[in-house]
């Protein structure tokens, strides 16, 4: 199982690696462990699947990918596994999740995200996806993002868990 140092390490890694010659040594200093231990802990966290990926996280909007659509589908439950498998094959699909329905008010269960340079392109890609995945008779809605009120990088924070003050430094 992961320990408190792993949790702190995950928190720091989500904030980002320093752009210096020895970034893992710097993390080691912050956590009071050696550079080698930082590297071996990260590689374990990747192996057990807790870290999904480690690398450059680009800013879609700045790279002109301004059309961000969340598409929600009402897929029959027994077809979800199969259809999601198809949906994930498209390189313009960035996420694909199953979430609970909320009665008639919100009957969607499959969510996918498409980032594109403009609406027309995204809608074209979506039409292609719907056609190729046999979703033409499935209800769906496209929710383009408008205003971003908050976009914080860190997703998991050991501080919230341990209620221990830990400088952002």
């Amino acid at each position: 199982m992961i320990d408190y140092i792993d949790r702190q390490l995950i928190t720091l890694l989500q904030k980002g690696l320093a752009i210096v010659s020895r970034p893992y040594a710097l993390l080691g200093k912050q956590l009071d462990i050696t550079e080698d231990e930082v590297i071996s802990r990260i590689s374990t966290l990747k192996q057990i699947g807790l870290i999904k990926r480690l690398g450059v996280i680009v800013n879609h909007r700045r790279l002109n990918y301004c059309a961000n659509a969340m598409v929600v589908f009402d897929v029959p439950d027994h077809l979800v596994e199969q259809i999601s498998g198809h949906v994930c094959q498209f390189d313009f699909v960035n996420l694909c999740y199953l979430r609970p329905r909320h009665g008639e008010e919100w009957s969607y269960n499959l969510y996918c995200m498409i980032h594109g340079k403009n609406r027309e392109k995204v809608l074209k890609q979506l039409a292609h996806l719907i056609h190729s995945c046999g979703l033409t008779s499935v209800n769906y809605e496209v929710l383009f993002s408008k205003k971003c009120f908050k976009q914080r990088s860190a997703f998991y924070n050991a501080n919230l868990e341990q209620e221990k003050v830990f400088s952002d430094g």
Partner: peptide, 22 residues
């Protein structure tokens, strides 16, 4: 550094698998 300062990259960091912790 330049790509980060100009905000073309948010960071060099990790994406964690949801709900494995927290």
């Amino acid at each position: 550094s330049e790509l980060k300062n100009k905000k073309f990259i948010n960071r060099i960091g990790s994406i964690i698998t949801p709900n494995l912790i927290g």
